[in-house]
Design a protein around this nucleic acid. Structure first.
Lengths: 197, 197
DNA sequence: CGTCTATTTGAATGTACTCAAAAGCGGTGG
DNA sequence: CCACCGCTTTTGAGTACATTCAAATAGACG
């Protein structure tokens, strides 16, 4: 892969560990760069997920479609974050989640076949990925707690405050799905907040 | 630490990676073994959490106390699992969670000061911990989804089915807290399930 | 056997959902 | 430039799931 295209990833990794010139080149030689259009799927429920993807630009949603055809959004991923069905990736079993692009999206993709080799060749990279997943786990647990201890309104306010960039980029009904409420109810919450001012 | 006491940990680690005699000895020399009584706290909300703990025997609950004094249980940990406030541990900032023993509990403790050294000396151990945290993250995401897409009743049935050992060991009001419902409502769900038979 | 804690039961209430319909909004074509 | 189409958001009425509070019952332990 061309160094220029990999730069956002290298900058990101540099926040966790520092790689030598050679290590950077080795890393870049192993990963794949790809563009997706709005609406395209990176992972589909039922398929085995073969990649962990770093988002260079764009935006994706990770969601689960339940038996009633209802969509439940687990996360959004924008620039400098990751997207995948990690459960499917690490076990190489069918994915529970879909990952779909909400915008034109550029990704750097780490394939299952390559990642073990990368960890072995560059142990620092394993440290980096451990740290990233640790942080992701912590956020996931905190989110679980928010869902238990906060009302829908407070969850929305938290989201708005924490991810203002994301809110502006996605339709409201997806925010509702992420918060675990219906689009109608989110609409009511918003109008209530306006009246309170 | 005496090898005998560390055996449950070594057996557990052996499922992920294989350590040489020397590595095992090095590991055991760095970790701490400790017993807690029922009711004692391993971590308290507000303190910095200095350990990641492997549960040799016993049972703990990890919970968050909200501003109304309401307890929200994030997880239970029993034999062969881990307990800590990882968020606090990795950032060395005050803990959001409490970890309390529900039974007499034996732990093997990895201190913050030691763990980096262990990762560096035994890179395989970093792999092991990465894999463990990956799995924990995946379960956390799946649980989030269950909380959105299942009713309280179905969440209870899932829990009962998935963690029968845990259900038998802890009072019902804690199960309710873990499921994110009140103790009264769980009681009603149970009586409803009995009537359905 | 009494005390303390955990569980159950019931009535009233509240938060969030469903369904249906209307209004808003952005793009496309005539 | 306006009219229409599809999609998103809003609004309202009725409903369901889960909570609160209070009181009764059951269980565990000394």
């Amino acid at each position: 892969m061309i160094k220029e295209k990999g730069q956002p990833l290298l900058n990101y990794i540099d926040k966790h560990i520092s790689l030598s010139q050679k290590e950077e080149e080795f890393l870049l030689s192993k990963i794949k760069y790809r563009k997706y259009l709005k609406g395209q799927f990176i992972v589909q429920q039922g398929d085995v997920c073969n990649y962990e993807c770093f988002v260079v630009s764009g935006c994706t949603k990770t969601f689960y479609m339940d038996e009633d055809g209802q969509e439940h959004i687990v996360m959004f991923s924008i620039e400098d974050w990751w997207t995948s069905d990690i459960g499917s990736f690490i076990t190489q079993t069918p994915a529970d989640f879909n990952v779909q692009c909400l915008e034109k999206t550029e990704l750097i993709m780490f394939s299952f076949d390559i990642i073990e080799e990368l960890y072995t060749e560059i142990p620092k990279l394993e440290r980096c990925f451990r740290q990233i997943i640790e942080k992701a786990f912590v956020s996931s647990q905190k989110r679980l707690i928010r869902n238990f201890s906060l009302s829908a309104k407070d969850r929305y306010l938290y989201f708005k405050n924490q991810y203002p960039k994301i809110e502006q980029r996605i339709p409201q009904y997806m925010v509702a799905s992420y918060l675990g409420i219906t689009k109608e109810f989110l609409s009511k919450i918003k109008s209530q907040l306006i009246q309170e001012q």
